[in-house]
Write a protein that binds this DNA or RNA. Sequence first.
DNA 1: CGGCATTTTGACCTCGTTCAACAACTGTGG
DNA 2: CCACAGTTGTTGAACGAGGTCAAAATGCCG
Lengths: 234, 234
Amino acid sequence: MSKDAIYPKNSVPTHTGCVSLVPIFNHLEKEQLDEITVTTQSVSYKKQELIYHAGDESTSLYIIHKGKVRIYRLSESGKEQLVRILNPGDFTGEMALFSESTHETYAEAMVDTKICRIDRSDLQDFLLKYPSISLKILAEFSNRLEASEKQSSRFATEKVETRIALFLVDILNEELPKTTEVTLPMSKKDLASYLGTTPETISRKFNELEDKGLIKQLTHKQIKIIDLDGLLLV
Amino acid sequence: MSKDAIYPKNSVPTHTGCVSLVPIFNHLEKEQLDEITVTTQSVSYKKQELIYHAGDESTSLYIIHKGKVRIYRLSESGKEQLVRILNPGDFTGEMALFSESTHETYAEAMVDTKICRIDRSDLQDFLLKYPSISLKILAEFSNRLEASEKQSSRFATEKVETRIALFLVDILNEELPKTTEVTLPMSKKDLASYLGTTPETISRKFNELEDKGLIKQLTHKQIKIIDLDGLLLV
DNA sequence: CGGCATTTTGACCTCGTTCAACAACTGTGG
DNA sequence: CCACAGTTGTTGAACGAGGTCAAAATGCCG
């Protein structure tokens, strides 16, 4: 008996797929992992497809299995702001999962993407059954909240050039092994949106940073950091 | 035998004090509440005293029992940003509690304040013992994250006048019963810091909103909202 | 009342946006 | 593989929002 007979196509169980990928689950025993795995569904999205959008009721936790997802919001005045980009192992959908509300953000596949979905009620069962998962999620939330407040604080107090410099330093620090070159994880258009400015200003400020001898633009996406300390003082 | 003989002064158990105040605990049975209550300690802070500051290792969850607490951060360039103001029933300290790190914010008593402290390890025990508490905290985190990202998005996309208008609308919506007058919950100096601008600009923009007939400044702290829809379109 | 912090006002100037034109890049079909 | 179209990135010039600095006004508390 094939599994395709039991589960609808395009929505088969993922076996060890993404569940074992995620930090929030990867401390569990194999047995528990399997238990969770069977409740997940794998869904595929084509480039540009929306996984959910503002106003949707949230019913699932989405774990990225393969691909890339843009999370963005529309502000009161209708401007788009890029909130973050999800890579394999990252998850989203949590907002409305734990409080009773609807999504306020949009999640869009940047490339063809595979996602594992865990249903809200299944997840809640697991949280009550294995409380250690909650602690993991709390840790993740805590980090994300920290990141969001830091970002907020930068918007409130730093000028654009500083925000760009700090952004470069941040992504440099995430590079392993340590290096002096970074690859911008998104287009400059998206970067502008992420940093709360315009593509024109991004372009000009990158030039200014280069003129000051702090960076070198190798290609559009490749930046060499020449003077790290200098960047921190911008 | 008096309790003062058992517990050090200024740090006595709070009995039903604040624990029952907080949304994250108030769904529990009286018995469980009491169990938590005996592990809490009550601490008092004088106006201007710091409850914790950036760099501190976090070891406790702090619940406001009485008073008012300012949470602020210093940005990379040393400017202060007001993150939020805590009132009785609110809690803080969670950041470093769930992930292994130090505080990045400062918590300062705005007036003489009483706080209940729950030790990190005690809290973790309760979370594992009563998983429903985790769900409550997850909901709270979720809301706070939502608020922080919304704020971030406003900084990124809205001009100062709009941010002020939206702020007024937000606090108007929190007023119960519904009214058309709001009391600013902080000084205009703090408001400037909260909204990422300067006191001068706050002062000028309030005048502009008044000139446009959208609000009326009754006193420094009392604002009458004349045209709610107009405010939303600013 | 006197002293101190907050708020306001004015003048100036800087930073970043906007608009428009152009250049470079990416992907698609012939 | 090239031509073309659509998108993304760059550059210039002008404008405008908001910051800064200085000083006066108001409010607050001992």
